[in-house]
Computed example of a mutant assay.
Amino acid sequence: MVQVFWGLWLFPLGYLIFKSAIIPKFLGILLMLGCVSYLINFLGNALFSNYADLGISSFVRLPATLGEIGTCLWLLIMGAKNNAISVE
């Protein structure tokens, strides 16, 4: 059940990153896809008893992994640069 909420917060975060000009848009898209992938994994584990044995859960979680780690690395290496125009 925790996995549902773990994934649901990725959609608003991904949307905010997609709309901002501070972090690249592809990371926002990956985070929004990551939200869907967490929900697919939850439903797969809940509905199918052998879902973990199929081996597709690691491929389904790939957008979430790339988006989360990519965002962390982007902020760590590049930082959040302020592109705001100063008002005089």
Rank of each mutant, 00 (worst) to 15 (best):
F48C: 10
L10T: 00
V2G: 11
M78R: 14
N50I: 10
M32T: 04
I85Y: 10
A46E: 05
V2W: 04
R61M: 15
F5N: 06
V87L: 14
E88A: 10
L54T: 09
C72V: 14
G28D: 07
I40S: 11
S86Y: 06
K25D: 12
L75T: 04
T65A: 09
S58C: 03
P12E: 05
L76R: 10
F42P: 02
I23N: 05
K81E: 11
L62V: 04
P63I: 04
F59T: 14
Y15D: 01
M1F: 15
L13R: 10
K19Y: 04
E68P: 08
L73R: 06
I22Q: 09
G44Q: 13
P63E: 06
F26Q: 01
L54Y: 07
L31N: 02
L30V: 01
K81W: 12
S57T: 03
I77L: 12
I69C: 12
N82F: 08
G55V: 11
N45L: 05
L43T: 13
L66H: 09
V36K: 04
G14A: 12
I77T: 04
F26N: 06
T65L: 14
C72W: 08
A64D: 04
K19V: 03
N82M: 10
I56E: 01
I40M: 11
M78N: 13
M32G: 03
L27G: 13
L43G: 11
N41Y: 06
Q3C: 07
A84S: 15
S37T: 13
G67V: 06
K81D: 06
S57I: 12
S49H: 03
L13Q: 12
L30E: 01
D53N: 15
A52D: 13
I56Q: 05
V4G: 02
I17S: 03
G44D: 11
G34T: 01
I22K: 10
I77H: 08
G44W: 13
W6G: 15
E68M: 10
W74H: 08
I40L: 08
Y15R: 15
V2Y: 10
F18V: 00
D53F: 02
L47I: 04
K19T: 09
V4P: 00
L76P: 02
I29W: 02
W6Y: 13
A64W: 07
R61L: 06
